[in-house]
Design a protein around this nucleic acid. Sequence first.
DNA 1: ACCTAACTGAGTACACTGTACGAAGTAACC
DNA 2: GGTTACTTCGTACAGTGTACTCAGTTAGGT
Lengths: 256, 256
Amino acid sequence: MNKEYSGSGDPAKSLELLWRRRPEPTRGPKPALTVEGIVEAALRIADAEGIAGMSMRRVADELGAGAMTLYRYFPGKAELLDVMLDTVYGELPRREVDGDWRAKLDEVARENRELYLRHPWMLQVAISRPPLGPNVMAKYEYELAAVEGIGLTDIEMDDTVALVNGYVHGAVRTAVEARQVIQRSGMTDKEWWLAHVPHLDQIGDTKNYPLASRVGTAVGNEFDAPYDSDHAFEYGLERVLDGVSALVEKRSRPKP
Amino acid sequence: MNKEYSGSGDPAKSLELLWRRRPEPTRGPKPALTVEGIVEAALRIADAEGIAGMSMRRVADELGAGAMTLYRYFPGKAELLDVMLDTVYGELPRREVDGDWRAKLDEVARENRELYLRHPWMLQVAISRPPLGPNVMAKYEYELAAVEGIGLTDIEMDDTVALVNGYVHGAVRTAVEARQVIQRSGMTDKEWWLAHVPHLDQIGDTKNYPLASRVGTAVGNEFDAPYDSDHAFEYGLERVLDGVSALVEKRSRPKP
DNA sequence: ACCTAACTGAGTACACTGTACGAAGTAACC
DNA sequence: GGTTACTTCGTACAGTGTACTCAGTTAGGT
């Protein structure tokens, strides 16, 4: 199975759903479900069982409805995912930060990290074209505000926000995958490693990879069984922000 | 559908496959297929049609065999993916670079980028526990060599390599998704945007998102229809390496 | 009061997926 | 020739998203 895709159907229909501008029907029976109810159920399932568990049948079951009923409310699964995404982006606190751009970008990174950790299924949805709902818009606005007025061009502002978001996405993805593989395999990283080492020693000459052996061992000793994702996140975020800092400083004193 | 998972079955069996140490059978009919042949066919399909197209039946068809035949050579799809991964890592040129650590890390980033672009399906395989084959080992060794002897601790070396790899992974994923969504939807980014704007204007007050509007427009004007992934890659890589540079310099003059 | 148009819910069907199971065939050893 | 190890592969199962179809329900118009 590969990635889920956020929708790319009829824009009018998608935006109607995202902004809750669906004209309510005048005739016929009252709808038994609501868009909100379906999204809530879908989120409950996705949070608990991952995106793989969130099938249309499963969501419908959760609501006591037939599978095809959901297609009265959403054109397809992709559009349901779109609304789910915009909904969870609404959970971002978007706190006001007293401080410079770095403090603000740091907050952006941490808020996004929390969100991904709370809804890991988000990491498996490809959103190259974001659902243009109210919360996605607010998120972009908030993130740009962190780097507004510090001497960057508009393009650089967008690049910087994308860089930080991309970094967080990747870091959390790695951490979540590490967490999930422990559950799925019933093995900690250390156990997994210890199960491989004897076979590796027998098969390949470990002496061919001196650096890998040395550093691998050091990493294994320092961060025991559970891969230390907090450490990796802090290290990487610091490097990324240092990199942005170098650019900001260059822009603030143009030429010597 | 969610991600594919690289295998976590029997270590002995997996390593045998990766290092080609399968004892060849003495009795019975000669096998009609080979591990190499299956991997080749699977790679051909995955490269051309993506990971979603690479089903066991599809690979077997390509080889003129029954679907279940593949399970004589691989315990399951996960193990086939493992061998596919290690195989393509073997394509990395791992060039010797004359220059400092930055030039070397830059080369690492670019080589990995090329590999991902050539085999985009790699981005949809979760490899929290890498297949410990010869090429994965060589890759890790090569990458560590870039940051050896510049004053970083072993842990920092691993963190740095992981940071660069993570950055490249994320950047290429974004670029590939952008490329694929154009194919899938038959719409360029600009067309997609223009299809949404009138509805957005009608529904939500664009005035609530001044920064998003301004920067969004600037980005749209600067990088036309196809999302300029080259630009984003170069920008981000420079920031990341600048960030690493700040650390290296701090380590090289310990305290003032 | 009644008809009709609009609407909802849901059953069935289709073409897929990975893989467990087991039947049937083949080749090398005793 | 018999046994044993080994092969290929058809069938089956429980899933998936969703197109199509049809029966049932309700509000508006007459």
